[in-house]
Amino acid sequence: MTNLPAITSRDPLRRGFVALPWAVACGMLTYAFIAGGYFVTVMSFAMIYAVFVIGLNIFMGTAGQVSFGHNAFAALSGYTSAVLTATYYWEPIAAFAAGLALALLVALVVGWPTLRLKGHYLAMATLAIGLIVYEIATQWQSVTQGYMGISGISPLAFWGYEIVSERGKLFALVLIVLLASLAAARLRASRFGRALAAIAGSEDAARALGIDVAHYKLAAFLVSAAYAALAGSLFVHVVEFVSPEVFGLHMVVLAFTMLYVGGIGTLGGPILGAVIVSLLPEMFRGFKDYQDLFYGAGLIILLIYAPKGLAALSDLLPRKGRA
């Protein structure tokens, strides 16, 4: 809830600063619905990533832990959805349930031993699991078809109702992002969320108040893995194709960028970050050969001047009446 005081601020300039990135994000979504075409695809990817980053934010932003391997959970669930619907003709919802269960099981096996240790053991373990799952996706060709990937995955469907149009998919994704964000907000404002935030603040103080730190870290890890699994399954149903590259290390880098650009630890940050970072390559396309250069420079400038991200832009203004 760290960004709530800013939103309720009466200072109009501050309000403007808070509203600006949201106006851009909403404007882009609206434009996508009107214009259609390629832009709808860009925004659909942004929404899928938003789900992923909302989950990552619970683990990294609220609980203050680090994971480089949440792409593994997206891959496990995504591939399960792909194989079960394309090869065995399962219902998408049932396939997703199976994928979610598999992702949670793996998260439990990885998280149980490593989350009891202090320090960077978990970060290392997650990096490893991300790489292992990627290797499996490329090598286990009889099931995953290796680099070729799996096509013919059934489109997004809810209770037998298939969503075929690009606009329809985007609309469904926006609804899912809003629900995912609402769930994250409720978690953050609860006893559960406070325990996670306490662990980020001081593990010793949390334990002294009776919080079982290992238990809550594992719970946060599983919750964020569930979000990643949902994002993975959504991706394969929206694109109707999957290959190992989709869930490679690139996914981690992109998700981290979105999390930090949007504002780690804030409620709205993941959505903002996902939309803005998805748009950046489009914005910088005009620079042609220098596109990556300007993209990188833009990110650095943003992180220097708004280290808490776009959701906390109002912090740039001088504070008044601070107690």
Binding site: A200, G201, A206, A219, G265
Partner: peptide
């Protein structure tokens, strides 16, 4: 050892952890 990232009020709310039940 305060939770520096939390508000004054939230710090105390964390203290209530043991006597409340809410989970996920």
């Amino acid at each position: 050892q305060l939770f520096q990232n939390l508000s004054v009020l939230e710090n105390i709310k964390v203290g209530c952890h043991l006597h409340t039940q809410g989970g996920l």
